[in-house]
Write a protein that binds this DNA or RNA. Structure first.
Lengths: 218, 218
DNA sequence: AATGCGATGGCAGCAAACTGCCATCACCCG
DNA sequence: CGGGTGATGGCAGTTTGCTGCCATCGCATT
């Protein structure tokens, strides 16, 4: 059977010796899903990817979780990477396992990051690679681009604001909404006004639009 | 190595004999991504799943491509399935490979549907299953629920409506918006009212929210 | 020409939303 | 205790949004 199409290695060193040539063999496409960008840091691979991107039109896509934007350094790094032509998108889910697919032919899956050497599974089985690639596409398609994700400064909204927001979204009049939230009409409207200020909205319609666009709801 | 954790079979018959017990062993969770729901039709498996869903709180999730809603029959079938408690979501990507993950322990990937017996790859490797599961989650998270997908019929908007929509989105008052569009205040407001009817919105905020959510803008 | 129909616009009245002003209250701090 | 501060709520007045009613206009059909 296809046993030779799948093998597992433990630790970065073994990965390099047994699969290093795969990284450097990348031709057209390099896709990668991970929690944060620092986990795959094989210098040689990076070198090759950088070169190929310049020369041939190598297509590099990285799907990351919001954790990748936690600190300023990571954010800068991503910007730099993106400026070199790498497509970076942010998904709302954690993505604890790192996934790399090379030229739609080779796939490397990393186990969870836990104490001890990390486990990597390398496979070239077309069925496996194709299936994972399809799922990656589905996740990629609906993820938001890095630029949008950062620029869309979702203003920080506390629980109160969210309650007001829900009431507005439910389509109630101010009076019923205020009663529902146990506020006076005056304060409720104050809240709405504050919300609109935060959203830089001139009308309620515009405010709703922003909320919908930024997915501040749900 | 973990060769026994991965094996490939050809054709449904072989899949049943070699992996049928896996289907019937499902305990807590059964997730499935596929182009359309008819491809996995092992009657025995269905039986088990139906029973378990009633008895224990078996969690069944199906992620499908819009192709699954092509004809009326499929749509009805999905409604029926959903009414039994199965979570059904629609992703915008094709999902040509079928993927099944059972209890986060076993994974079955089907090759592309092509002439000849279909190829299935079955694996229990935690790394592989975990990685694919994470990607599935990412795709699932951002997919739209079946009900929303069907009900959220993005109302057809003509050029006029879009102009009104832009004016509203710009945050103008009705008066300036009407002047800008060369309409009387009365007709402009009529247009807004029509728009809100189409969007089934009770307030302008709600209308804006809908527009933003459905990306009717942009 | 006459008729009918749909879109438009003005008017008026009403409902809803917005805001300034001030009294009140809770709370913290010197 | 007294004073400062910030959140709240009532009141009133203004603006804005909403809609029913009717006159008008353009256009097509008969």
């Amino acid at each position: 059977m296809a046993a030779d199409q799948v093998f597992t290695v433990r630790g970065d060193a073994e990965l390099v010796t047994r699969a290093g040539h795969l990284f450097t063999s990348v031709r057209q496409e390099f896709v990668c899903a991970a929690r944060d960008p620092d986990t795959w840091s094989l210098p040689a691979a990076r070198q090759v990817i950088n070169n190929n991107m310049q020369a041939t039109g190598l297509d590099v896509s990285k799907l990351l979780s919001p954790a990748a934007l936690a600190d300023e350094a990571a954010r800068l790094h991503l910007h730099e990477v993106a400026s070199k032509g790498v497509h970076v998108r942010i998904s709302s889910t954690p993505l604890p396992h790192e996934t790399i697919i090379i030229d739609r032919r080779v796939m490397i899956l990393a186990g969870r990051d836990r104490p001890g050497p990390r486990e990597y599974t390398v496979t070239t089985s077309p069925t496996l690679v194709g299936g994972v690639y399809a799922l990656f596409q589905a996740a990629w398609e609906t993820a938001t681009d890095l630029a949008d994700f950062l620029h869309g400064d979702a203003p920080h909204l506390d629980a109160d604001s969210l309650a007001v927001l829900r009431a507005l979204g439910a389509g109630h009049t101010d009076e019923t909404a205020a009663r529902q939230l146990g506020l006076s009409l005056r304060t409720y409207r104050r809240r709405v006004a504050e919300l609109m200020t935060k959203l830089e909205a001139a009308s309620r319609f515009q405010a709703g639009l922003r909320v919908g666009e930024l997915r501040l709801n749900s």
